[in-house]
């Protein structure tokens, strides 16, 4: 149980970073941290006691495998996370070019 709780702690650490950091890049890093905690959690869900890697052995197809589905989900989620992070970094670079700063307090054109 403790590992699952540690995942949640990592998630909250990322959330704390998103809420308190003032630097755009640090916000992006905190978001990646939250994402990683979720991937860890998803991978842990599939674990079974004493399970082995889910590679089918033609000689003995019925063994105690770990659940392969969460691993597939994690891979898909990693691909999505890659796209999101790349998009976020592109916007951050553009913002830096327009405003000349990474400080979120300086970037406040939109109000109301």
């Amino acid at each position: 149980m403790i590992v699952y709780c540690l995942c949640f702690v990592l998630f909250l650490t990322g959330l704390y970073g998103v809420l308190t950091r003032r630097n755009l890049v640090k916000i992006a890093i905190s978001l990646s941290l939250m994402e990683c905690s979720l991937f860890l959690f998803l991978a842990l869900i599939g674990y079974t006691e004493g399970g082995i890697a889910p590679i089918v052995d033609p000689a003995d197809p019925v063994k105690n495998y770990v659940d392969p589905l969460p691993q597939a989900l994690v891979l898909t989620a990693i691909v999505i996370g890659l796209a999101t992070t790349a998009m976020l970094m592109a916007v951050i670079i553009r913002l830096y070019r327009k405003y000349g700063t990474f400080d979120i307090r300086e970037i406040k054109e939109l109000r109301g």
Binding site: I27, L88, R94, L95, L110
Partner: peptide
């Protein structure tokens, strides 16, 4: 646009 998009993305 960039500011709105950043907020939206986070």
């Amino acid at each position: 646009e960039l500011e709105a998009s950043f907020k939206y993305q986070v």
